[in-house]
Design a protein around this nucleic acid. Structure first.
Length: 623
RNA sequence: GGGCAUGUGGCGUAAUUUGGAUAGCGCAUCGGGCUUCGGACCCGAGGGUUGCGGGUUCAAAUCCCGUCAUGCCCGCCA
């Protein structure tokens, strides 16, 4: 589909440029078309200020002269000037027709093709497999889900990946706790295991406990012990429970990579060999780091600012005892992502059918080779506290001479989710109201209460509508906040169904659906109507909002910013609501007006459905 | 000590990357709208020295310098 604003503003810009040229001004490169004028007119341009500076003439005089020198431009009705600005007033009929026909004829599943089918892997939420998903992971998951949807709709070949860290101290602690008790799970497995983990973690400071833990850790690391098998089984059960939560939020994945598989397949060794060849990692024969594999940052030229304050400019990546650190595994993992380690894993279906109808595959001991990875861009959705290791990761590829990979790794760093009281730490236990499951349950109950006295529907449909509304409130509340900001989580803020919210957007969509259904007019007749009749302020404001769709989506995709889409959906919904309040559509309009307005309603609904789709919000027909 | 991020009406936020006109929106408050195409709605009012101080510019929430506050990171944890 075309971008109405872009194509019109380009035309205007070229006319402005030639008008300026005919007056002896050189405006090339300094014309900034402001797509939407805040003051007067529909679009505006401030080029007169720049010209006035070099020519010594007053801005408003320059603007006047340019306005007079301009010929007719398509979709522009008139040009005026004010305070040095050129203001362009659109031809409402022509522009509305352009926008509405454009959107109704477009393939809304592929709004843009800027992706060029480029393959990217988006990694999220990578929650540890020993506790339920809490509201911090939920933020991660929802950002990942919408960034993935944005890339889908912009023509990328998207792979949704999840990294399961089933090794490491936290997992060992959970297993130790699990082995030391005989109870059977009395609730959802991730919640149950999370409690055990938190309790066991509370014992860490007790005398002698650490020794017991490290003994268990060794058994697990040996790779073929009973403990190893138990560890994996336990983690898998927990991840399956977490994926139930993900599914209830409409999220799914293509592939899960297990940390233990990276270790078992000896990918770290392969990665280290490649890095040693490039001279980036060293294995000192003496001194403090004897026996380790290290990165010596002192020898790196143009060290990025992230590393400026390091006390020791040395980073150990393989310990003295031969075990790899997190960073070593992450480097190997990213070599896999970018196809540097051929056929590293075998895969089998971990979940046979997700809500998208497809399996989620997971790496494992057995299975078949598949074509995951081999991407040219990796988006890692990881919270801001990991800026440093992510920088180190990019540096490793840069030092290998793989700037393409270093630049292809994008750390989408989001701000942490805090609680009003206390911190959100799984090791201290997660109360139900801070889990994704608990939040959804509460939201669902509130939504159901609202719907009961509103909708005359069967119990089953009421539940499904309530679930959609509940989810939309939560998703919108999380996604409307710019990713880099931290959130202080409170139920009150998340569970809102009014105003600037998901349910408000859904509500406007539902209204538009009812209008279309009740009209009994088919889309073809709407399209063949006299759209030129749409010329009132509220009608045209809605047209202008619809016209922004493609520009907003592309920008949100390129900048990894879902909140641009929530902002847009909100604007769109308000524009529709005002139109709806002021303009008669089915009643009180002439047959011709009715058809034209319905065409506008239809175009609105397309734009709204597309926006809601990116946010992972159901576009309900009634609610 | 160093690095990174954040700071916008009572609360929550948008615009900052790419400097443009009167800083947009929601909640809350106050006042309206005969719930007649669905009131999860609409209209209006009050509420802001964009943390603070300088600088650049015709123009600064936005860019530069300084400063304060808060948070995170700088480990042979992950």
């Amino acid at each position: 589909m075309e971008s109405p604003y872009l194509s019109v503003s380009r035309k205007i810009a070229s006319y402005v440029e030639s008008a300026a040229k005919s007056l002896g001004y050189d405006a090339a490169g300094s014309i900034d078309m402001m797509a939407i004028s805040k003051a007067s007119g529909d679009m505006s341009c401030s080029v007169a200020f720049k010209i006035s500076k070099s020519k010594g003439e007053k801005p408003d005089e320059v603007a006047d002269k340019i306005a007079k020198a301009m010929g007719n431009v398509a979709y522009v009705k008139s040009v005026s000037t004010e305070n040095g600005y050129l203001n362009f007033h659109l031809d409402r009929s022509a522009f509305s027709e352009f926008v509405i026909r454009n959107i109704i004829n477009a393939d809304m599943a592929k709004v843009s093709d800027i992706g060029g089918n480029k393959k990217i892997l988006i990694e999220y939420p990578s929650a540890n497999p020993m506790h339920p998903i809490h509201v911090g992971h939920l933020r991660n998951m929802l950002i990942g889900n919408s960034v993935a949807a944005l890339h889908d709709i912009c023509g990328y070949n998207v792979e949704r990946g999840d990294y399961i860290e089933d090794l490491g101290l936290q997992m060992v602690i959970a297993i130790w706790g699990y082995l030391g008790q005989n109870n059977k799970p009395d609730k959802k497995f991730d919640h149950w295991l999370g409690d055990i983990y938190a309790t066991t973690n509370g014992m860490v400071e007790e005398p002698g406990f650490r020794d017991k833990i490290s003994e268990l850790a060794k058994k697990i690391e040996q790779g073929d012990t009973v403990e190893t098998v138990i560890a994996r089984e336990l983690a898998e059960k927990c991840v399956r429970a977490q994926y139930e939560t993900a599914a209830s939020y409409g999220c799914y994945h293509d592939v899960l990579i297990w940390e233990s598989d990276i270790v078992r397949e000896r990918l770290v060794e392969k990665a280290m060999d490649m890095l040693t060849d490039k001279g980036f990692v060293l294995r000192p024969n003496d001194g403090e780091y004897k026996g380790c594999t290290i990165i010596d940052l002192k020898s790196v030229k143009d060290l990025p600012s992230e590393f400026a304050g390091l006390k020791e400019k040395v980073k150990v990546i393989i310990r003295k005892d031969g075990t790899p650190t997190y960073v070593a595994k992450d480097i190997a993992f990213h070599m896999w992502k970018f196809g540097m380690l051929e056929d590293a894993f075998k895969y089998s279906a971990f979940i046979d059918k997700q809500i998208n109808g497809k399996p989620a595959y997971a790496s494992g001991k057995s299975g078949m080779h598949m074509d995951f990875g081999h991407v040219s861009e990796a988006i890692n959705i990881i919270d801001v506290s990991q800026n440093y290791p992510q920088a180190l990761l990019r540096l490793a590829f840069r030092q290998m001479g793989r700037d393409d990979i270093a630049n292809g790794i994008r750390h989408l760093s989001y701000g942490r989710v805090e609680l009003e009281k206390g911190t959100l730490a799984a090791r201290k236990g997660i109360s139900m109201e801070n889990t994704a499951d608990g939040l959804l349950q509460e939201s669902f109950e509130r939504a159901r209460g609202l719907i009961r006295d509103r909708l005359k529907l069967g119990e089953e449909e009421q539940e499904s509508v309530a679930r959609s509304v509940a989810l939309s409130a939560i998703k919108f509340a999380f996604l409307k906040i710019a990713t880099e900001k931290w959130i202080t989580f409170s139920w009150k803020r998340v569970l809102t169904f009014e105003g600037d919210s998901g349910p408000y957007c859904q509500y406007m969509n539902a209204r538009s659906t009812r209008l279309i259904e009740d009209s009994g007019i088919n889309v073809k007749d709407m399209l063949n109507s006299n759209i030129a009749l749409l010329s009132s302020d509220t009608e045209f404001n809605l047209v202008k909002a619809i016209a922004r769709l493609k520009d907003v989506i592309e920008k949100a995709c390129v900048e990894y910013r879902p909140n641009l889409v929530t902002e847009y959906a909100k604007d769109l919904a308000f524009a529709f609501s005002r139109f709806y309040e002021t303009m008669p559509i089915l009643k009180g309009s002439s047959p011709e007006e009715k058809k034209a307005r319905l065409a506008l309603v239809f175009a609105f609904r397309s734009a709204m459905r597309t926006s809601l789709g990116i946010l992972g919000i159901d576009a309900l027909d009634r609610m």
